[in-house]
Write a protein that binds this DNA or RNA. Structure first.
Lengths: 149, 149
DNA sequence: TATTGTTATACTCTATAACTATA
DNA sequence: TATAGTTATAGAGTATAACAATA
C-alpha cells in the first residue's frame, strides 16, 4: 500500500541521493554551486554574469565569487562582451568543455541505469506521473510566493 | 515519449522544488539545516549531539553550532545526560514540539495534494517505481564510496 | 585510552549596500 | 538615469585539529 506520504518520503530520499551522488563525483576544484554554473554555460554557451545570476537565481555578487573560483581553477575565462564594455562573457575553457562533456555522458549513463528494465509503457506512465507531481509542486511554491510579497 | 534523461531531469526538478517549498515556509529563526535537526528530534526524541552528528552525517562541531542557534531561538534545550556526564541530551521545547507538529501536518497535506486524484493502483505502481529508482541510486552512491577509500 | 563536546581556524555559499565604469 | 560588475561586510553551513572533562 503506497501512501502519499511514502511517495513524498521517497521523493525526498531520491533528491538527497542525487545531490550526494553529484557531490561525490566532482573533480578537484568543483563544488555543487560551481558545477551548476558550468552546467548553464554548457547548455547556453558564453553568458554574461547578469544572465548567470538570473539563471541560477542568485545575486550578481555571488556570481562574481563563483566565476573567480572557476577562473582560478581554469574551468572558465572572462572575455569582453563585444557590444557592451560593461559586461563580461563567461566562457568555458577547453578543459571546462571536456569536463562538462564527461559529466553529461555520466549523467546519461546514470539516468539509463536508474530505469533500466522498465517496459516502455511503464516508463511513459512514470514520466507522466512525475510531470503531474512537478506541476503541483510548482503551484504550491508559487502560492507561497504570492502570500509573502 | 519519456526518455530516461527526461525522468532524471524531472527528479532533479522535483528535488529542487521540494527544497524550495520547504525553505520558503520556514518560521523565523529556522533554516533548512536547523529544521533537519529538529526533524530528527521530532522522530527520535531527546538525542545526544554525537547521535545527531551521525544521523545528519555532519561533524560534531557542526552540531554544536546548529544546537547553539536552535537554543538561542528557543526551539531546543540542552539537558544533562542522566547516565553520562560528558554527553548532552538535546530536547525539543514546547515551542519546538508545536512547530514540528504543525510542520508534520503541512507535510501530510502537501503530500496528499501532490498525488490527489491518482487511482490507487497507479499510486501503487508509482511507489514501486520510485522504490526501484531509489535503490539503484543508493547502489550508485555506494559504488563511488568504495572507489574512494 | 577512548569518547563527548567545545574552542580555534578556515573555506564556501549566500545576501545587501555602496561604488566604478559604461550605456 | 540605469545597468554590469566589483569591493566591503556579514551570516550560515561546513570541515579539521587541538583540548577539556569524563568514561
Amino acid at each position: 500500500m503506497a501512501t502519499p506520504e511514502q511517495i513524498f518520503d521517497r521523493l525526498i530520499e531520491i533528491a538527497l541521493l542525487i545531490e550526494d551522488d553529484l557531490a561525490r563525483s566532482l573533480p578537484d576544484g568543483l563544488t555543487v554551486a560551481r558545477t551548476h554554473l558550468l552546467w548553464v554555460l554548457h547548455q547556453s554557451g558564453p553568458t554574461t554574469q547578469q544572465s548567470l545570476a538570473t539563471a541560477l537565481q542568485v545575486s550578481p555578487r555571488n556570481v562574481t565569487g563563483l566565476v573567480d573560483a572557476l577562473e582560478a581553477s581554469r574551468f572558465v575565462e572572462r572575455r569582453p562582451h563585444p557590444g557592451d564594455r560593461r559586461a563580461t562573457l563567461v566562457t568555458l575553457t577547453e578543459s571546462g568543455v571536456r569536463t562538462m562533456d564527461a559529466m553529461e555522458r555520466d549523467r546519461r549513463d546514470s539516468a539509463a541505469e536508474l530505469v533500466a528494465g522498465l517496459e516502455s509503457d511503464r516508463l511513459e506512465q512514470l514520466g507522466h506521473d512525475l510531470d503531474l507531481v512537478a506541476a503541483r509542486l510548482q503551484k504550491l511554491v508559487e502560492a507561497q510566493i504570492r502570500v509573502v510579497p
